[in-house]
Write a protein that binds this DNA or RNA. Structure first.
Lengths: 112, 112
DNA sequence: AAATAATGATCTATATATAACTCATAAAGC
DNA sequence: GCTTTATGAGTTATATATAGATCATTATTT
């Protein structure tokens, strides 16, 4: 059938996904875990794990992070123990920031 | 209707998703971009952006990374310019690692 | 305080990711 | 080299995420 919607991705996010996939695959092999094994533990199919390791965009974020955690890939290069602290930090920051962003109405007399 | 499948997530991945969502939201607000605006530029709906910022697991990895890139959240704390290098590194590593993991057959006489 | 714009929340139809299979190939270990 | 197991790739049915809408609420700016 005809393809209905095509989504595009920036180079940066494509590369980030590729990198994440590679990191996961390398970590899995280093830990001597089969794809089957990891998939089972993560509660996903082997096919999905394959796609995650390939860095394909159309995977569930949750499944991807779960797998990463499982094989020991650190997201954000942050230690598990400090994750909470970082969350707290962002919450504090968000508390200070405005709750909603108001677009400036275009100013007519701008440069004089 | 009855819920059909429930997926569970480890604490680490849940926290990682929450953190990512928070980082994205903070970055978006700091850059004074409305949710609408970011969603449009990323080619996704505002509803999906909301869920991404909430750190919900069932979002597309690609969409999430795309949004992160858009508002300037660095994945892996890695500069855009060096991403390629990191990919290369993992590829080199993968080239050295075994292509498939062979499970050791259970050793009967293990502890003597 | 009033006006207005942004966000939060919820709903439905539809596109699509996923699980579960199969088969072919490759590679590890003996 | 041989055997066996892991992986790669493809297919299909089904569960489900997403877009797109609406409405209520909140927050910003004047």
């Amino acid at each position: 059938m005809a393809k209905v919607s095509v989504r595009t991705y920036s180079r940066y996010s494509r590369e980030a996904m590729t990198l994440l996939g590679n990191l996961i695959r390398a970590a899995r092999i280093e830990r001597e875990m089969t794809a089957q094994e990891v998939a089972e533990r993560a509660g996903i199919s082997r096919g999905l794990l394959q796609r995650i390791e390939k860095g394909e965009p159309k995977c569930e974020l949750g499944a991807t992070f779960e797998v990463a955690a499982l094989v020991g890939v650190k997201l954000f290069d942050i230690e598990a123990t400090t994750l909470n602290g970082h969350i707290r930090q962002t919450e504090d920051k968000l508390a200070l920031l405005p709750k909603s962003v108001r677009k400036k109405v275009k100013v007519a007399d701008d440069d004089f």
